[in-house]
Design a binder for these strands. Structure first.
Lengths: 225, 225
DNA sequence: TGTACATCAGTGAACGCGCGTTCACTGATGTAC
DNA sequence: TGTACATCAGTGAACGCGCGTTCACTGATGTAC
């Protein structure tokens, strides 16, 4: 007669009461997050398999369930632990940029571009799984990050319009949409941008890419006589 | 002893020789394309199942194989028969727009936006499956359409720069990238754009959306003193 | 200090399921003679 | 005109496979006494 175990380690994982401490060798949870981040960004949520992710993390598929309960929660964990800090980092830099609206927008564009060239999977993951109509995480993310980021930018635009720095015949929301369009798309359509158009999107060209976006957004391409 | 059939209807389908004509009631091939287009655009390629597509088309899964051989070819057929004509329509309107570079860009933006509000699934499908790094159709499409469309726009930019209409300190390729960014992203990030920013992306607002994109691209948002 | 035991992190093997694809087959259709 | 037959569009049922998930179990760890 085998002993009956009623312990489910997924319930009340928090208390951390008596048990054994770490003695751990390597952080398998982090390996899983790494592998999941990579797979979700490259193959999409539906195109990724837990088995493949576990294999890449050198871990059993059962461990994915042990730490993250199910596939959707694993994606949620990637967003929370890997994406969110990056976005909050950008938001903080923008908040610290000072009152000048042009400088604040410059900080946003440079900070976003620098983050994106270092983590090109982030915009891809966000667009595929969060901002698309059928994204698995649509609701959760939209509320937590997108709203905060866009309202921050919107305030900068409005401030600039009040100060006379920006034209008043452009809706602030539409301006935010255009600014994000300029910044985000190059990282989503990489094969078009670097393959067909021959524009390099990497760390060495981040500055000039950001400056180009700012130039277009602020001044457009029409010649001033 | 059952008769041995060696006919494989997937081979030499072209000759169309003696056989029986149509007598057809409904076009099941077209129903499959409709359902596939809908499913691929909404759930992505990996997230769509042939069985679900067949169910939606009121057709057996075996028929999908009968007409399209496999899942990847079904996507290819959707691109060829549903996406390509729309893109070629835009290209034709731009080609017929006359020599003025500003008018030509205006034609592109209005034509693209009008097409996209009528078929919002097109940009979504292109970005998800064609322009993303792991897209199933990346190679095929990039060669066939993206190159043609971007080189058409690039020529307009260069022409405008030579004529002094556009500033010369912007790389033509980068300008094309920015113009496409402005036009495409609103249809990819619909939940952000219409949900969070409150910008309506539909037939009734297509004109003003296109005008906004043109305004930003040509003049930017900085106030002219 | 010694020891019984609750709890820990983690595993191996299997579960049922839906997937893309295959294939033998049907019956209507048009053709050749 | 009549009829044997090749070809047509389309189907039903099954194939093997990989999927996400489950669960009984192990052995190390730390605690209570």
């Amino acid at each position: 007669m085998p002993p009956v175990r009623t312990t489910n380690p997924l319930r009340n994982r928090k208390p951390r009461s008596p048990g054994r401490p770490v003695a751990g060798v390597r952080d398998q949870r982090a390996s899983l997050l790494d592998a999941a981040q990579h797979s979700f960004a490259h193959a999409g949520f539906a195109g990724s398999s837990l088995r493949q992710i576990a294999l890449e993390a050198k871990v059993t598929p059962a461990l994915a369930h042990y730490y993250f309960a199910d596939k959707a929660s694993l994606l949620e964990a990637v967003i929370t632990h890997r994406v969110a800090p990056l976005i909050q980092g950008i938001a903080k830099e923008v908040a610290d940029a000072g009152p000048d609206p042009i400088a604040a927008l410059g900080t946003f564009v440079h900070s976003y571009t620098a983050t994106a060239v270092r983590n090109p999977w982030v915009p891809q993951l966000i667009v595929r799984e969060v901002l698309s109509e059928q994204g698995v995480l649509r609701e959760a993310f939209a509320v937590r990050f997108a709203t905060a980021m866009t309202s921050q930018l919107r305030k900068i635009i409005v401030r600039g319009q009040r100060a006379g720095t920006f034209r008043r015949d452009v809706q602030p929301a539409a301006a935010v949409m255009s600014l994000m369009s300029l910044c985000v798309l190059p990282f989503i359509a990489t094969p078009l941008v670097s393959g067909v158009l021959g524009i390099q999107v990497d760390a060495a060209h981040a500055e000039s890419l950001a400056n180009h976006h700012l130039k277009i957004f602020l001044d457009g391409i029409e010649a001033t006589p």
